[in-house]
Structure formats: C-alpha cells, structure tokens
Nucleic acid binder design. Structure first.
Lengths: 171, 171
DNA sequence: CAAGATTGAAATCTCAATCTTC
DNA sequence: GAAGATTGAGATTTCAATCTTG
C-alpha cells in the first residue's frame, strides 16, 4: 500500500524505503482507517441516509451559537474546502436542513443556519452514530490506549504542519 | 464532529453521549486523519498527479506475482468495492498503466496487469510518497508510539468486525 | 441461483474560474 | 489587489441494475 516491489533497489534521492516493521505499522494503520470510516459511513447511510461529511456539518452548526456559522468558519471546522462546503450547503438547503442568510455587517459574508428540521434529522441520526463510535473505538480501547492515541494524533498533526512548511520551501 | 449540542438531554435508546475526554480523543483522532490523508493526497497530486486511491492500486499490483491480480483480489487488497475498482481500472487503462486480461481457467474472471509504463510511473511517484509517510508518521513517532499505534489499530479492526456482526443481527 | 465483473446514472468532491465586497 | 463565497466542469465514488459464467 505504500511502496513498489518488496525489496529491490534503493529509491531515488535520499529516501529510504520503509523496512518490514515500518511497513507493517503503516499498512495496519491504513487498513484500520479504511475499515473505520467505512463502518461510520455505512452505519450513517444505512440508518439515517446521511453521508458522514454532511453529518459533520450538521454537528458543527448544532454546537455553534444560534446554530449559525459563517461559511469560512464552517469550512475550517469541518476541514473542508470552501468549494466543497458551498456545494454541500446547497444540497442540505434542498433537504430543508440548512438555510443561508447574509451576514449582517460584512456584505461578502454568508451564514449557514441549522433549521429545526435539520436539528431533528441530526437528533434522530446521532444515537446510532455515537454508539458506533463507542463500539469501534472508545470502548474498544483501554484508557491508556485512548490517551496514547490522542497523543499520537497530536504528534502527527504537528509533524504534518512541519512537513507542509518544509515542502513549500522546497518549491 | 460527533454528537449534537454540547450537554443537553441524554440521547434515545440506551446510548450515552461521549463525555468531555472521550469527545476530545475522538475529535483529535478525526482531525489527525483528515490532515494526514489531505497531506498524502496533496503530495501525490502535486508531485505526480496521481490520486492516492490509484497509487494504492499500482502498489498492490507491483507486489503481486507477475504484476497481475484478479479484480476481486485487487478490490480486497485495496479495500475497494468491485464497482469502484472497475471504474478505476478503466481509467488506469486509459493512462496505459494497466491492462486487462481474461482469466485462463475461470471465464468469468478478469486480471489486471501492471504495464511497464505503469511500473515506471509508480517508481517515479514512490520516493516522494514514502518520504511523506516517513515525515508525518514513521519518524514523527517514537518506536513505542509506533508499536502502540499498531496495536491500537489492530484492536479497532477487531472491534469493527464485532460491531458489524452485531449490527447485522439487529436487522 | 451465486459469483465475478461491468455499466450507467446519480451523488459527491476537486479544480480553476468568477463575482462581489473589503 | 485580497478575502469571502459561489459556480460549472471534470473526476471519482456510490448505488442499483445487468450480464456472463460457475
């Protein structure tokens, strides 16, 4: 899932292929992720007919003051591009779960607002989703493992930022 | 990213909302995943113009005997649906990186074969990808963290299988 | 009828403009 | 010109048939 051939020659540049242990760790992590998001997506789709990406949008709005958020903030919260979010909000508007309002002071701004229907759909979908998260992660891990996973995740996030700033310099 | 409102009433059924610690762990993990796959996808797209999903297909074939694999096996290896894989192979056939052959003994079967051009494209793309995996995960974590992550991933995979068999019974 | 694989249409996501307002 | 947001086109993924062979 990561590099070609099994042993072979060393790759170009100064890059080292992953050794056996490294490759196994990475493959296991990848496989876990695939299965995890497939399970989350599948549960939501089967029981509530909502894609995970849209569910996340509804949750972010439900947590916001007045159930409203500017497009930019919502995009940042859900880790989405502004384009993707804009399309998604249009779709959710069709469902009647979200409506758009114009920003009071900044006339460039749009605000996405969760409707009552949207809140109801979210309330109906949430228990099944949360139960799945409990089953497959929270209650599957020991408290120590949960702590470790959180620290590991933070470490990876930091490493990604470092990698991004370095690779942008290389250009 | 997981459940509506912040405190509120208990959800329906016997489900418990995530408490503060649980929610933070889950959100951190989700955010890490988003950033991680965005980084991998972005690097491959920027430096090699290959989507990660297609890269995985090329790697799986490069590891197979004779650089060939039946559609079903390849779908399982890459964690893809048969439909998705079939479309993807068609696309990669257009690129000249893969060709289809019919299975010698089972006349229902098709075999995807990595072409020389496909292998070259993979060889060119791999160092950058592997370096990214090193930067953002392998070398960012301590050996203990890598071990822990691998064990956690296996535990989650097991929990997902258990969850799947239970939820299918509920129907 | 089940297994292996493909197909076309609909849904979603990405990418590069575009448009308005700051 | 930059920031906030949208748009349309193209690419990928999903979903529900479909088709052939076991």
């Amino acid at each position: 899932m990561t590099q070609p051939t099994t042993a072979g020659e060393p790759p170009a540049d100064g890059v080292r292929w992953l050794d056996e242990d490294e490759a196994r760790t990475w493959r296991t992590f990848l496989e876990c992720n695939r299965a995890l998001f497939a399970a989350l997506e599948g549960q939501l789709q089967a029981e509530s007919q909502i894609p995970l990406a849209y569910y996340d949008i509804l949750v972010s709005l439900s947590e916001a003051p007045d159930h409203a958020l500017r497009m930019g903030s919502l995009a940042a919260e859900t880790g989405s591009s502004s384009s993707r979010l804009s399309h998604a909000i249009s779709r959710l508007e069709q469902c009647g779960w979200i409506r758009r309002e114009s920003h009071p002071s900044d006339r460039r701004g749009q605000v996405a607002v969760l409707t009552n229907e949207g809140m109801e759909a979210l309330t109906a979908a949430a228990p099944g989703h949360v139960q799945t998260v409990r089953d497959v992660l929270i209650e599957a891990l020991t408290p120590d493992q949960r702590t470790a996973l959180e620290e590991i995740s933070l470490t990876i996030c930091t490493a990604i930022q470092r990698h991004a700033s370095q690779s942008s310099q290389r250009v």
